[in-house]
Simulated assay, not measured.
Amino acid sequence: MADVEEIISSELAQVLQKAPNIEGVTLEAAVRNIVRATIRLTGLRTITTCMQFPAQYPQEPIVIELKSKTLPEKVCDKITKICEEESKKWLGQRQVMLMINFVKEFLIENPLCVCSEELLSVKKKLLTSDDTVILKQATSKVVYRITQEQYFMQFVLVVPEEYPLKQVKVELEEHNFPEILKVNFISQAIEIARKCVQPPIKKKPKDPPFEPQPSVLPVVKFLVESIKKFPVMCCPLCKERVFPQNPLEPVTDKRKRMEKLYCGHLFHFGCLYKYVKTPPFTGKICPDCGNAIYHDKFKLSPQLMEARWAHKQARQRELDEVVDFLE
Rank of each mutant, 00 (worst) to 15 (best):
I7D: 13
S9L: 12
Q14W: 06
L16I: 05
A19R: 09
A19G: 07
V25S: 02
T26D: 12
A30E: 05
R36Y: 00
T38Y: 01
R40Y: 01
R40H: 04
T42W: 04
Q52E: 15
Q59I: 02
P61K: 02
I62C: 08
K74M: 06
C76N: 05
D77Q: 13
I82V: 14
S87I: 12
K88R: 15
L91M: 03
Q93T: 12
M99K: 04
N101V: 07
E105S: 14
E118T: 00
L119T: 00
L119M: 11
L120V: 10
S121L: 09
V122Q: 04
D131C: 03
R145T: 14
E149Q: 13
Q150R: 10
Q150M: 06
Y151N: 05
Y151F: 07
F152L: 07
Q154E: 15
E162V: 09
Y163T: 03
L165S: 13
Q167V: 01
Q167L: 15
L181Q: 11
L181R: 05
V183F: 14
N184K: 08
I186R: 03
I186Y: 05
S187P: 05
S187N: 08
I190L: 07
I190T: 15
P205F: 11
P208T: 10
P212Y: 02
P214T: 05
S215K: 03
P218V: 06
V220I: 08
K221W: 10
K229R: 11
F230D: 14
L237C: 01
L237D: 02
K239W: 05
R241M: 10
P247C: 11
R255T: 15
G264D: 07
F267E: 01
F267Q: 04
H268R: 09
L272S: 09
L272F: 15
V276H: 08
V276C: 10
F281Y: 08
G283L: 04
D288K: 12
I293C: 01
I293A: 06
Y294N: 09
Y294H: 13
K299Q: 10
A310Q: 09
H311M: 13
R315T: 11
Q316I: 14
R317K: 13
V323D: 12
F325E: 07
L326F: 15
